[in-house]
Design a protein around this nucleic acid. Structure first.
Ligand SMILES: [Mn+2]
Ligand SMILES: [Mn+2]
Ligand SMILES: [Mn+2]
Ligand SMILES: [Mn+2]
Lengths: 136, 136
DNA sequence: CATAATCCGTAGCCATTGCTACATTTGGTG
DNA sequence: CACCAAATGTAGCAATGGCTACGGATTATG
């Protein structure tokens, strides 16, 4: 009885934990993408990208700096640390697989882009491997 | 230029919006399930189910009552409104499809249960339809 | 039916992520 | 170089969802 409930609580705990990493994952991915595309990444670029105010971005950048994922000086562009770059590459690869998977499954591109943005953070290594197999 | 960034901000806005509904969805599903299984749903049942304190549950139940999804009197079991029941059935069906889909894809049951608990909330109607097609 | 165990509510704390309003810095232009 | 516009930071508010500590209500048990 109690084991049943305990076992069922694992998915929820895991989901909360994944949501806690989600902001960091989306931010490092966005920073990497912007630096690739336009050479630098400003706070306002991120604000427009995520459709939030620059204040929200500014605070989150500060926190991710404390977590050693990003660095920047006041009024300066945002850059990735080695740790942030490593995470960004992993996250981007996972995201691309999830997106390609949804499209291969028959979802139109626009909806695949929307859904993959949320789904990516809940895809564990086993599910990711299954998606890769499906793509081959 | 700006349209490109604007277009990319849509998935993030949608993901935030889906996260805002996630608690309500998981709660009505849990309440329905518990009433089916043991006749009633208590605050402490939900606390054990989600692996959070009874205080967290209590506050969320109050909010979902304001949203007309649940009802309960102090120190009494929690029940679903008609609106809550309708939502619960939809959410449960979607969750079951996502879970079955992952298993069919080759993910082991334990990981499918974990990942589907998060993925379910990011599956739009188009992706859900694609999963249904895959299952047939 | 009295008492203890269990359940639940309230107070109050923290972290996160949204926001507006205002201050400051930076960089381009006259 | 002085000034203005744009970018960024800061102050402070709200909602949400975690928590512990404590107190009141309900239920079980002897
Ligand atoms: Mn994402
Ligand atoms: Mn999510
Ligand atoms: Mn669910
Ligand atoms: Mn869920």
């Amino acid at each position: 009885m109690k084991d049943k409930i305990k076992a069922r609580s694992v998915p929820f705990s895991q989901t909360r934990s994944r949501h806690a990493s989600e902001t960091a994952e989306d931010y490092v991915e966005a920073v990497m993408e912007m630096i690739e595309e336009k050479g630098e990444c400003r706070v306002l670029d991120l604000a427009r990208y995520f459709n939030v105010s620059h204040v929200t971005v500014s605070r989150i950048v500060k926190r991710l700096q404390d977590e050693k994922l990003l660095y920047s000086k006041p009024y300066r562009p945002v850059a990735l640390t080695a740790k942030g770059f490593k995470l960004a590459k992993q996250v981007k690869e996972r995201h691309e697989i999830v997106l390609a998977f949804l499209i291969e499954l028959g979802v139109d591109k626009a909806n695949a882009q929307i859904d993959s943005e949320g789904i990516e953070h809940h895809v564990g290594s086993k599910t990711l491997a299954a998606m890769k197999r499906f793509l081959k």
